Simulated scan of single mutants.
Amino acid sequence: MKTKKILSSTILAIALFTGINSFAQNVVEVAVSSADHTTLVAAVKAGSLVETLSGAGPFTVFAPTNTAFANLPKGTLETLLEPANLTTLQGILTYHVVAGNIDSKAVVAAITAGKGKAVLKTVQGGVLTASLKGKNVVITDEKGGVATVTAVDLKGSNGVIHVIDTVLMHK
């Protein structure tokens, strides 16, 4: 019994000291640790939003993958990353963020309560509409673009990330 207790304590200590516990990481650090979100992380850095998104939150981030950014029209990402387009980039990135810690169960519950749709107000000030397409949650932006949620509930110390397959655009 004593050996099990020591072993459990040792494993917990190793996890805490090596950063295995994802709750020790904020949403930005969780994204940084993902090979599928290097473009998003570069955009967050270029948009001077690291400090904001590392703050207390809580935040719900709909995080586009590298492939989602690659599917933007040719030259769009490069243009957005130029210092002259900082405000536009910040608007697009904050359009992917909702205040609060909304896990996947809460998203589905809101869709059910809304009779098939849940309207989510973004930090940018726009709205996203969540709905179900079969068993998948889809997010529709203000321009009619649709992103499918491909991974859910990547938890950080200041919120949660849901991975999406399309970059969302506000009006």
Results as ranks from 00 to 15, higher is better:
Thr67Tyr: 10
Ala46Thr: 11
Val61Asn: 07
Leu40Pro: 12
Leu53His: 07
Thr38Met: 08
Lys45Trp: 05
Ala68Asp: 07
Val44His: 08
Ala42Thr: 12
Ala42Trp: 05
Val50Gln: 13
Val44Pro: 12
Pro64Arg: 03
Asn71Phe: 08
Phe59Glu: 06
Phe62Asp: 02
Leu72Phe: 10
Asn66Asp: 15
Pro73Cys: 06
Glu51Met: 07
Ala56Lys: 13
Ser54Lys: 07
Thr39Gln: 06
Ser54Leu: 05
Asn66Lys: 08
Ser48Asp: 15
Gly55Met: 02
Ser54Phe: 01
Leu53Lys: 08
Thr67Arg: 15
Phe59Met: 04
Phe59Lys: 05
Ala63Lys: 10
Ser48Thr: 14
Leu53Tyr: 05
Ala63Ile: 09
Ser48Cys: 12
Pro58Ala: 01
Ala70Thr: 13
Val44Ser: 11
Phe62Lys: 03
Leu72Gly: 11
Lys74Glu: 14
Gly57Leu: 02
Ala56Glu: 13
Thr39Ile: 14
Thr65Ser: 14
Phe62Thr: 04
Thr38Gln: 14
Thr67Ile: 13
Thr67Cys: 08
Gly55Ala: 13
Thr38Cys: 04
Val41Lys: 01
Pro73Gly: 08
Ala46Leu: 12
Val61Gln: 07
Phe62Ile: 04
Ser54Trp: 00
Thr39His: 02
Val50Thr: 15
Thr65Tyr: 06
Pro64Glu: 02
Ala56Ser: 14
Ala63Asp: 10
Ala46Lys: 13
Pro58Asn: 00
Val44Thr: 11
Ala68Pro: 10
Ala42Phe: 03
Val41Asp: 00
Thr60Asn: 01
Pro64Lys: 03
Ala46Tyr: 06
Thr65Gln: 10
Ala70Glu: 14
Val41His: 01
Thr60Val: 05
Phe59Val: 08
Leu40Lys: 13
Gly55Cys: 04
Phe69His: 00
Pro64Gly: 03
Thr38Ala: 11
Val50Tyr: 05
Val61Lys: 04
Phe62Cys: 04
Val41Cys: 02
Gly55Ser: 13
Phe69Leu: 01
Leu72Glu: 07
Leu72Arg: 14
Leu40Glu: 12
Ala42Arg: 07
Phe62Val: 04
Glu51Ile: 03
Val50Met: 09
Glu51Arg: 12
Thr60Glu: 02
Pro58Ser: 01
Thr65Gly: 09
Thr52Leu: 10
Lys45Glu: 15
Gly47Tyr: 07
Asn71Lys: 14
Gly57Arg: 02
Ser54Gly: 14
Thr67Ala: 15
Ala42Leu: 09
Ala42Asn: 10
Ser48Phe: 06
Lys74Gly: 03
Gly55His: 04
Thr39Phe: 04
Phe69Ala: 00
Ser48Gln: 15
Ser54Ile: 02
Pro64Ile: 01
Asn66Cys: 10
Ala56His: 02
Thr67Asp: 15
Asn66Leu: 09
Val61Asp: 08
Ala46Asp: 09
Thr67Leu: 15
Ser48Asn: 15
Gly47Trp: 05
Thr52Glu: 10
Leu40Asn: 12
Leu72Met: 14
Ala70Ser: 15
Lys45Gln: 15
Ala63Leu: 08
Ser48Trp: 03
Val44Arg: 09
Gly57Gln: 07
Gly57Asp: 06
Thr65Asn: 09
